[in-house]
Write a protein that binds this DNA or RNA. Structure first.
Length: 336
DNA sequence: TTAAGGTTCCGCCATT
DNA sequence: GCAATGGCGGAACCTT
């Protein structure tokens, strides 16, 4: 069950507009708009509103019709500005006024990508730290000198106002919001369903096509990379905590905060992923796969594999190995 | 499949 | 007073 669950349905309102990117709106709909009965009755409810009347043309040649006008923002717990139609395009004054009013009510306001230009135009980011797509940082700083911009992060959480960097960084911010509202297990569940990492290390600096100063990642982020690269090495909590320069108790706390799971749980998941890759490549015996992926023996691999995946390693290889899939399919067809 | 020994994890509480 | 940290003990889980 989630660690901290809102005690009533959380209303999310996305502001749609003419020229909207289907990607930014798509990730909002994916995270907040899908039916997720497993999350309980208080999961998010997504509605849309627009400052402009009539059907709206969105990227890719689609037409969109919003559920409501701006008046529905008064009922929102979270407002999302999924981008904007252009960095030089002035947002309509009624939209800016509605955002200011929501901000005064304490409503959480979130921008994706260049949606930060709208929040900044409303004055919501003055004297605050914010981010936007790295290609627009210079234009943003020039247009809004009162805003402190961090171009190297995936998102900035300033409490009631949050901004994310370019396109896919919006996913990181939306998962961060789920993590804050419903706990890391819920965020991990949403991430798994989207088939994206629940937590990405580093910031958008790693995607910028210009030299940027390297910011030191946390010891834990570095350790996770090392663990992923050396799955076949024995890893005890004592050793990992020592490498992270923490006590074992603090290491366990920090690990759960960062990943939403325990070191053993994380390792098991990573080792099973590696075992699946090896099985699907068709190389080596089950014993070899077990040793290479960090399970001490084939028996241990079989036990965990069946418990998590539901089938034996050998059956997985039969179904998904590039070499054996065809034979398996032929067998299944024959049996049918 | 079973059993024994080892390890992990988390609540609790003291300390900083 | 509050938050972060670290140690301890015991139940649960894992490995062999």
């Amino acid at each position: 069950m989630p660690k901290s669950v809102p005690n009533s349905t959380h209303n999310v309102v996305a502001i749609v507009f003419d020229g909207m990117s289907t990607f930014e709106f798509g990730i909002v709909a994916e995270v907040f708009g899908l039916d997720r009965p497993e999350m309980g009755p208080n999961w998010y409810r997504l509605t849309t509103c627009a400052a402009e009347p009539g059907p709206l043309r969105v990227a890719g040649g689609l037409m969109a019709i919003a559920d409501h006008g701006l008046d529905c923002l008064s009922l929102a717990d979270t407002i999302i500005m999924p981008g904007w139609r252009g960095i030089g395009m002035l947002p309509p004054e009624p939209l800016l006024e509605a955002l200011r009013a929501a901000n005064e009510r304490g409503t959480r306001i979130v921008s994706l990508c260049i949606g930060a230009f709208v929040l900044a135009a409303a004055g919501l980011l003055d004297d605050r730290l914010a981010t936007t797509h790295w290609r627009c940082v210079d234009a943003f700083s020039a247009a809004f000198p009162a805003v402190r911009v961090d171009p190297d992060v995936l998102y900035v959480d300033q409490g009631s106002v949050m901004t994310s960097a370019g396109s896919a960084a919006g996913i990181d911010l939306l998962l961060h919001i789920v993590r804050k509202d419903f706990g890391p297990e819920a965020a991990n569940s949403v991430a798994r369903r989207m088939v994206v990492p629940a937590h990405r290390d580093g910031g958008q600096a790693q995607f910028i096509e210009r030299p940027v100063p390297q910011h030191p990642n946390g010891k834990l982020a570095f350790l996770l990379d090392t663990m992923r690269e050396q799955l076949d090495r024995p890893m005890t909590i004592a050793v990992l905590a020592q490498e992270a320069a923490m006590s074992e108790r603090t290491f366990l706390r920090r690990f759960r905060e960062m990943t939403g799971t325990t070191p053993a749980g994380w390792l098991l998941s990573a080792r099973l992923d590696r075992a699946k890759q090896l099985l699907e490549s068709g190389r080596g015996s089950i014993e070899d796969v077990a040793i290479t992926s960090g399970f001490g023996s084939a028996a241990t691999l079989r036990m965990h594999f069946r418990a998590v995946v539901g089938i034996s390693p050998r059956e997985h290889r039969m179904r998904f190995s590039h070499h054996e899939a065809m034979d398996f399919n032929l067998q299944m067809n024959d049996a049918a």
